[in-house]
Every structure is written in structure tokens, then in C-alpha cells.
Computed example of a mutant assay.
Amino acid sequence: MGPPWQADWTKEAEDARTALPAEACALVDAARAELVTAKDPYFRGIDSGRDLSAGMSVEPVQSTRPGGAHVIYFDHGRGWLRYHFVPRITDPQIVIDECFWR
């Protein structure tokens, strides 16, 4: 299995996204697009994040859990999506559980 990955939003994250202004929604959609098309949604490896669009970066929520929740920052850190990747064989999926932009 490989990209594009399926992505799902928790109710709270979807509500936060729909409450954003249109220009912020476009930034969120661009960050989501980076996630679903990434070869490795956790962007592991030395050069794996270099293909991200300008103003985006990814890091694990806890450095001691590299396979756990991650955050993709967008708009030069003004916003982020917290997500985790479920690498099931039949239905791998990205679950976005937090959406924030200021």
C-alpha cells in the first residue's frame, strides 16, 4: 500500500477547520494534501521533510514515540494539524485529531 492515503477527521478537528476563515482553510487543505500524498506520513529519515512546501514542517508530538502522534505545522508555524497514522494492511489511514490556526 502507498499514497494517496485515506484521511479522516475527528468531529472536533472538523469543527475547528470549518470555523476557520477561507484563507486558513486553504492552508489546512494544503497541509492535508501533503500528508495524504507523502510516501511516509511520519516523514522519517534525514531528508524526508525536504519535499514539504515552504512554511511546513513535521515532528513527533513526543520524541520518545516516533511512531505515535505527529504534528504538521503550516503557515510558518501559525497553524498545525495533529495526526496519527494507522498502517493497517487493508485500509491504512491518517486520522487528524486537532486543527489549529491563529
Rank of each mutant, 00 (worst) to 15 (best):
G2T: 06
P3Y: 06
P4G: 00
A7R: 12
A7E: 10
A7W: 03
D8R: 12
W9D: 04
T10M: 06
T10I: 12
T10D: 09
T10R: 07
K11T: 10
E14C: 03
E14V: 02
D15W: 01
A16Y: 05
A16K: 09
A19W: 07
A19H: 07
L20M: 12
L20I: 13
P21I: 15
P21N: 13
E23C: 00
E23G: 00
A24V: 11
C25E: 15
C25W: 13
V28N: 02
D29Y: 05
D29R: 09
A30P: 02
A30Q: 09
A31N: 03
R32F: 05
R32M: 06
R32N: 01
A33Q: 15
A33C: 08
E34D: 03
E34P: 00
E34V: 03
E34T: 06
E34H: 03
L35H: 06
L35I: 14
A38F: 03
A38P: 00
D40H: 05
D40M: 13
D40R: 08
D40I: 09
P41T: 04
F43D: 08
R44N: 03
G45V: 15
G45T: 13
I46T: 08
D47Q: 08
G49C: 11
R50T: 05
D51E: 15
D51V: 12
S53M: 14
A54Q: 15
G55K: 14
M56A: 07
M56G: 05
P60D: 08
V61S: 04
V61C: 07
Q62D: 14
T64Q: 11
T64M: 08
R65C: 01
P66Q: 10
P66W: 15
G67F: 11
G68K: 11
G68C: 11
A69P: 05
A69L: 15
H70R: 13
V71Q: 06
V71C: 05
Y73I: 14
F74E: 02
H76P: 00
R78Q: 14
G79D: 09
W80Y: 10
W80P: 01
L81P: 00
L81S: 01
Y83S: 05
H84C: 08
H84L: 14
H84G: 01
H84S: 04
V86E: 14
V86C: 04
P87E: 07
P87I: 09
P92L: 12
P92R: 05
Q93T: 06
I94H: 02
V95W: 10
V95D: 09
I96L: 06
D97K: 04
D97E: 12
E98S: 02
E98C: 03
C99K: 06
W101Q: 05
W101M: 06
W101Y: 07
R102I: 11
R102V: 13
